[in-house]
Write a protein that binds this DNA or RNA. Structure first.
Lengths: 155, 155
DNA sequence: TCCCAAAACGTAATAACATAACATTTTAAA
DNA sequence: TTTAAAATGTTATGTTATTACGTTTTGGGA
């Protein structure tokens, strides 16, 4: 029995539901192409560059995709809070906790490439406090810690 | 009385001395070209992109400069701790406190473009603590807070 | 002083990342 | 069902950064 080629990376129902919720909240449309890009990011278990994502999607869909197309989808996914951009490596990663929007804060392993999201209330508070002390109105923030994750440390 | 064109941006003696100290500590050579790039960054009072820096240096020196040249000088200046790279805007800024090496932590004004370095012991401690809790060996870190500075907030 | 290896620099080409400009299609709401 | 906004398609181009390779400069040891 033959199977038609997979048209998109599998997207667990749970993740799909959250994606739909976030888009509804933001009054944004979750189109198949956007969902496809999100699913592909989820299928990679590490941050990927925009051009890597293009290659993955082209392989999956067996057709050419323009860079602009993927950049638009990434902009969208970031806008609704499903994806974060890793500034120090110019790559993109699905948010680990997309239920609610939040700042991009990561531990980045330089050996295995894994990006672990930081969940720290005190960190957010401290950043706000620092900005406030300087008379600065913070609108967004980025924290990226480079190093070796627990697994790679021992190698 | 005519003057020869300025060959390099003026570099205050104080800054020059610190640059020499940092290079000595790092056993690195402070060449005229490296010093020229540093002086030009100091002369701009905001982060500049690598290609903006090329344009500034070309105008100053009245000659073509290859991108690689400037990237090498930037790598050097970052290596010895005189310059920081702003990851979220892909630009470069002289360190406000180059006396000692430290992580890159900035308040970035999206209106006037000013980059104000954050001096916060607690922030560094908290980042170390967070990494340590996760079994992560931190090697470097970046903090960038985007928003409006005190002056621009009121506009 | 001269030799030599390492560091710095020069040149050209190209890779990698991102957006502009403009036409067409899809969608959801009036 | 019309229609205006959103999304997408296509092409070109702008911006950022590196690779490959050859030459020059530098500083320390024979």
């Amino acid at each position: 029995m033959t199977r038609t080629p997979t048209a998109a990376a599998p997207l667990p129902a749970h993740q799909r539901k959250i994606a739909e919720q976030r888009c509804a909240e933001a009054s944004e449309r979750l189109t198949p192409a956007r969902l496809g890009a999100y699913a592909e990011l989820l299928a990679s278990n590490r941050p990927v560059s925009a051009y890597e994502l293009i290659a993955l999607l082209e392989r999956r869909q067996q057709k050419k995709i323009a860079p602009l197309t993927v950049y638009r989808h990434l902009d969208f996914l970031i806008r609704v809070g499903l994806v974060h951009r890793i500034e120090s490596t110019q790559s993109y990663v699905p948010c680990d906790h997309p239920e609610h929007s939040h700042e991009s804060q990561y531990l980045l392993c330089s050996s295995c490439g894994h990006a672990a999201e930081i969940e720290s209330g005190p960190l957010g508070s401290l950043l706000n406090e620092i900005a406030h002390q300087q008379g600065f109105r913070a609108e967004s923030s980025v924290v990226e810690i480079q190093g070796l994750c627990r697994s790679c440390k021992t190698d």
